[in-house]
């Protein structure tokens, strides 16, 4: 599997990470190396093998529908880089 600069650029955009030209260049190269190494997995026969998403065999973990504590708005907003009264604010979203 080879990974092009365009692919890295597409993925960086999906991940919302700004990369400069130099970073793009370097990352493409490094990712290529990592992917070549990862491609070792292709040699195994995995037909009939179930994937493991959870290593523990636990299931049906549920909580009761009883209200717990919420945070006061001051605390919820205490770390906000930008706020207005009781709201977080972001650059205008244009739909």
């Amino acid at each position: 599997m080879s990974i092009s600069k365009e692919t890295v650029d597409y993925v960086a955009n999906l991940a919302r990470i700004q990369l400069n030209e130099q970073e793009l260049e370097r990352l493409s190269r490094q990712l290529q190396g990592i992917l070549d190494f990862i491609d070792k997995l292709r040699e195994i026969d995995i037909s009939d093998i179930a994937p493991t998403s959870h290593i523990l065999e636990i299931k049906n973990i549920l909580r009761d529908d009883t209200p717990g504590e919420s945070l006061p708005a001051e605390k919820a907003l205490a770390n906000a880089p930008s706020k207005n009264g009781r709201f977080f604010t972001v650059p205008k979203v244009i739909e």
Binding site: V11, A12, A15, L31, I38, I46, I49, A50, P51, T52
Partner: peptide, 24 residues
């Protein structure tokens, strides 16, 4: 970026799903 790539459209089965199976 590597993690986003292995989950992205068209690569999930080849990477993420395969890795989960080898994890088994």
């Amino acid at each position: 970026i590597l993690g986003t790539f292995v989950l992205s459209h068209g690569y999930y089965d080849a990477y993420y799903l395969r890795a989960q199976k080898v994890r088994t």
